[in-house]
Design a protein around this nucleic acid. Structure first.
Ligand SMILES: [Zn+2]
Ligand SMILES: [Zn+2]
Ligand SMILES: [Zn+2]
Ligand SMILES: [Zn+2]
Lengths: 130, 130
DNA sequence: TAACAGAGTGTTATAATATAACATTTAATA
DNA sequence: TATTAAATGTTATATTATAACACTCTGTTA
């Protein structure tokens, strides 16, 4: 059993904010939210974000340049991520569907490239917005 | 039969550059390359890029903030896009695999969201780099 | 203990990516 | 021709992300 990761002060602060948020957060919005805790510069945010992504605690939503907490525990440290994104209200939901993930992970590109990781983003309208 | 799209001057210039490129191009690198043709400002590039994406002539590689020409003619105006991306040399290859595309397009999220579009990005090392 | 290494922090500055706003021009069409 | 829609040119600014450097903190080991 892997040892639970111990987070540094800044990493913990940033993770807390992201976990409490209802939707994806942007780096600078995180920054504004933690200035009362003594974090003053973008670097401090981006460094924490990088480590949290490495650890699989959060994911970056590439199409939005925003970050969400990992809700799925089995996304294999970000090797296979999928999200549904509402184009109207910005809601993001992590999809953890073993069958989908397995299917995509086993896809082999004809041109001889061996994949290490994928990221899938679905777009549409959520229940509320449609 | 849909009428062939006629491109405006700036749209054509930007598309030409992207089509000639061997890899994905960034917006500002496009800008530097077309200044001799009288395009001087980022807005002009981004406007052309937006239209070209709408038309399905190019795609944005979200994880790289870069743009590639569509090579696949059947990607249904960007409703279903997939790319393989080399983490070492930056190479990007559009994947057009009907089976994969169909499988993903037919995926239904439990939470009642109906998808209109997806984008899938695979990461690994290409033949050259591994 | 002292020296060292590794990860994390704080800080200033700057690079890279993208959009707002407004005036003008061109092309399509009623 | 008058009216619209699409595209253009331009200046300014917002947003996202990284570079570089000095310092701290912690645990290891010579
Ligand atoms: Zn996850
Ligand atoms: Zn919604
Ligand atoms: Zn395509
Ligand atoms: Zn490569």
């Amino acid at each position: 059993m892997a040892q639970a990761q111990i987070l540094s002060r800044n990493q913990q602060i940033v993770l807390d904010i992201i976990e409490k948020a209802k939707g994806p957060l942007k780096a600078y919005s995180i920054l504004f939210n933690v200035q009362k805790k003594g974090i003053n510069a973008p670097q401090q945010i981006y460094r924490a974000l990088d480590k949290l992504i490495e650890m699989g605690k959060i994911h970056k939503i590439e199409s939005k340049n925003a970050f969400v907490a990992c809700r799925s525990s089995d996304c294999e440290i970000s090797k296979a991520t999928a999200f549904s994104i509402c184009e109207s209200c910005e809601m993001v939901d992590e999809i953890s569907d073993a069958k989908l993930s397995k299917y995509i992970s086993s896809f082999n590109h004809k041109k001889g490239m061996k994949f290490k990781r994928f990221n899938l983003e679905f777009f549409g309208l959520c229940k509320k917005c449609k």
